[in-house]
């Protein structure tokens, strides 16, 4: 692969053509927070946490879907970006009901980690307190929509890695919801294979094992990333 040079946060880097800005940053210890991104899944650029400033471009670009180009000068830690990352985090918390103290994922939650990382001390926007369902119809797992941040990792892992297409999306705007099949209780789904990949990749306490208790739920998103990598190596 031919190499190009780019400058990210004053670091001069030599990178392979076709690499995304996010991958370059991760490989060079430049910390960019993400929520919807997971190695192994198709990137959708939805959470907007990984936005970066590229000199010469007026728009902020999502680093997960933007490929580096020769001689680009990229900034990933400007005051503006830090402020926006904190605001996005605040909106995540305000949108549904993220009550860490009683959450099964307390202490093992990417959203909680994000809050600490971006320095969110409080949420300045009014909570929406949406009345969301808890679907415990499945024999092995539970879907708590109150904790869902619509990263759609579950949807993508189910369709692209497992190939089951159990998860989908319905409604628009802030009323958007993850659904099983054509909006049936998860337990009635005819497509779910009980593989549990969606639970492993879920960054919050939205998807969990039925036997989990407060703070006990551990997730293994890396397992899916590794699985995809192994498959790619095989083919």
């Amino acid at each position: 692969m031919p190499k190009i040079s780019v400058k990210i946060d004053d670091k001069d880097l030599e990178v392979e053509v076709g690499t995304t800005v996010l991958d370059v940053c991760r490989a060079n210890d430049i910390d960019i927070p993400t929520m919807c991104h997971l190695k192994g899944l198709v990137d959708v650029g939805a959470c907007r946490l990984c936005l970066v400033e590229v000199e010469g471009t007026s728009k902020l670009l999502p680093s997960c879907t933007t490929k580096v180009q020769a001689n680009q000068v990229i900034h990933t830690q400007t005051d503006k970006l830090k402020k926006y990352r904190r605001m996005i985090t605040e909106l995540f918390f305000a949108e549904r009901n993220h009550v860490c103290s009683v959450c099964i994922a307390n202490g093992n939650c990417e959203l909680q980690d994000l809050g600490y990382k971006v320095g969110m001390e409080n949420v300045r926007f009014p909570y929406l307190f949406q009345n969301c369902e808890v679907d415990s119809s499945h024999s092995k797992f539970v879907m708590d929509h109150n904790r869902c941040i619509m990263c759609t990792r579950c949807v993508r892992v189910c369709s692209d890695v497992e190939g089951a297409h159990n998860w989908g999306i319905m409604n628009r705007g802030y009323q958007v919801r993850i659904i099983a099949d054509f909006n049936v209780p998860w337990g009635d789904s005819t497509t779910c294979t009980y593989c549990g990949k969606c639970v492993d990749v879920c960054p919050t306490g939205a998807l969990w094992n039925k036997d989990a208790t407060q703070g006990s739920m551990q997730k293994y998103p890396q397992a899916v990333s590794d699985l995809v990598e192994k498959r790619e190596m095989k083919s």
Partner: peptide, 20 residues
């Protein structure tokens, strides 16, 4: 707010917040 598709966070939650 009604027409936001709900994919990205700023538009999905931000339009609702601004409307409120």
């Amino acid at each position: 707010m009604d027409e936001s598709c709900g994919k990205c966070v700023p538009c999905r939650v931000g339009t609702k917040m601004m409307f409120d």
